[in-house]
Design a binder for these strands. Sequence first.
RNA 1: GCUGGCCUGGCGGAAUGGUAGACGCGAUGGACUCAAAAUCCAUUGAUAGCAAUAUCAUGAGGGUUCAAGUCCCUCGGCCAGCACCA
Length: 803
Amino acid sequence: MYNEYNFTEIEKKWQKYWEKHHTFQASNDSKKEKFYYLVEFPYPSGAGLHVGHVRSYTALDAMARKKRMMGYNVLYPMGWDAFGLPAEQYAIKHHIHPSEAVKENIQVFKKQIQDLGISFDWSREFATTDPEYYKWTQWQFLQFVKHGMAYKAKAEINWCPNCKIGLANEEAAGGICERCGGPVEKKEKEQWMLRMSDYAEKLLAGLDDTEFLDRIKIAQINWIGKSVGAEVNFKLKDTDDVLTVFTTRCDTLYGVTFMVVSPEHPYLEKYKDRISNYEEVKKYRDLAHRKSEIERTDMTKEKTGVRLEGLMAINPVSGEEIQIWVSDYVLMNYGTGAIMAVPAHDERDYAFARKFNIPIVEVIKGGDISKEAYIGDGEMVNSGILNGMTNKKEAIEKMLIFLQEKEIGHGKVNYRLQDWVFSRQRFWGEPIPMIYCEECGWVPVPEEDLPVLLPDVASYEPTDNGESPLAKIDEFVSTICPKCGRPARRETDTMPNWAGSSWYYLRYMDPHNKDTFASMDAMKYWGMVDYYNGGMEHATRHLLYARFWHRFLYDQGFVPFPEPFKKRVAHGMILGENGEKMSKSKGNVVNPDDMVREYGADALRTYEMFIGDYASDAAWSENGLKGCKRFLDRVYRMKDRLNESEKYTPSLEIAINQTIKKVDEDLDNMKYNTAVSALMILLNEFDAKETISRKDYHTFLLLLNPIAPHITEEINALCGFGAPLCESSWPTYDETKLENDTFQLVVQVNGKVRGKIDAHSNTTKEEMVSLAKQIENVQKFIEGKEIVKEIVIPKKLVNLVIK
RNA sequence: GCUGGCCUGGCGGAAUGGUAGACGCGAUGGACUCAAAAUCCAUUGAUAGCAAUAUCAUGAGGGUUCAAGUCCCUCGGCCAGCACCA
């Protein structure tokens, strides 16, 4: 492409200037008002920076630069989320320590980001893999232990046989391993768990303190999955035991004709002597166990199950004896692992009862239960105390009171959210700082011994038996018990990737603190993150983990605010030129380095802001990028057409004030595409003039600077406008100069545009109507017709309604 | 299945209920040039017309309104989240 200026040189020059002058360094000791912008820190993969990174980093960069010009003390930091599987796998393959691979990748990423001129405060940079950082991740884990929020439990975990790793529910959604895409199995293993489910209500309520996008709030609410209902106890016939179920529809209790327990329910084992067909039951249970999660949760498949012969339950309201079945459509990890089945009014129970010929009793009138389960509302029948009631809510309330009085049940709130499986059988993660002693059990590593460092060894292949590679490293494992001094073993599991990213935003506030993870003063000054940008793929897990972690720290008095993030915003993806997701295999990957080399960082930045609505996906177009480069070239050329005036050109004054307002508001609202468009429009207006004033041009450069910082600084210097733009004030607009004194009057007849005429803005309503009627084309339409109504919108439009 | 979002020219996309298609890309014609690149000028939703202008047009069909891309209802398509959640 043709170039009339050397953008590479210009970009390097100003990047050096900013570095030398610490332009973007945030102060922890400032009288200015603060603003904290955060983008999700990247995982420094070997593939390098993606054009998607450029989009979000530039977007918040533009806001951060603008806010600095407005006089705020802006924190816009960057770091590295560097633990994780890819680095470990790379290391296994190439026989180098993961920390080496990570170091190299970080250097590449950092160079790429710096070439873009993103105004990060690099003095606060760190990686989650730095011992000085993960020391505090471990320290915070110990606080969870100290407050009974961490426990080790033999839990059935999601095990990926391919990756040889235990997965959190979040990583195994739908029974598919999110890393390799293979099926996930169940495996029993001792795992460290965090009691996140205890925080379900707080995490739900805390959303009120945030300004997340609605769709993000909804995703969080779904994930927490609050459900209000009741726990009801069903007596087991001829025992003193009860089978407890959770239900949201206790009003249908009279319609319960059987119960179903999940294959993992402990009663199968407990009552094996009473279950006369136990062998059959056991067979079913083992079969269910071997099935992958995906097979079990396939809703389209037919219901299966086995009746527990010899074991009966009693319907607590009707007193009837009812059958008990085992079936895999009941899940052990939700509710109590057992359900009451109301086949007349639940689709799943209906299908099950139909298949196994179990009685179906209607309790809500309205459907034909010989054909299907009726799930609507209606009058209660066959329901004792509820008969005749038609209001579902009242029926539930009445039944709840009854259950409580008879002590057979009580109100109960259930959550889908489960405890966080916090162990990973991996080398490249933060070691869990716990020691197992035969005498004392699990003992935390004393805080003064932190960090527990990862050993510097050559082998970190995962093991087939599900142990962490660390288990094979004797000098790591062998230690002494901090309590009794006897020989003991270190925990060899490491933390999940989500750990380090759960509190990094706090460390940025005070990154070099040696005494604590961040000082209270620093955290009080910086407060909540004002804007937190990330992908939608992190709207549930990462965001929930971080909020939980933060809320726990708050409850222990370690942080001053209950919620970490005020606003959460999400960028759309940048797709390949063919509209598909960029991937190596599709050959549609765009490398930002190539674009910076060929068109310059400013053009790339401007284009990515112009590409479309920030929150939506957008397809890459190199021609679009060229168009933005052309725009910057035209901006540059305009410098040769200045006159000596230090005032706005009178005929441009309105347009300039309008543009200041538009760009100002659009940048605040993340409407970057229309901000760029407004600047293009203004440039077109400049272009139509022989000459423009120095002030016209200077203001334009100030407005464009947050998006295209290098070229605007250079032009500013070339023109001798004074201080660099990054040290100048953001322009303000004059409220009285936003409107022209003429406007185009649009004339409609019956809502259709029939004419336009210029009018002075002080034209009265009456004058507007008479002006309208003078237009020739309008007269054609109203001639000989009766005008029944005249609608006048001042300074805009007249609509004549005719009959 | 439930919840939320989206659907506008050849393309990316603009439009507080008030001129649909801003801005950009692409395309066509022209200027400059020996030529090309770059740049500049003009045209560019469809149909009819020399034109003025008219008709049609924001996924489909209804409705509310003086006026609907925008609000309401029905349907279709796409995307996302959750999903045998009791």
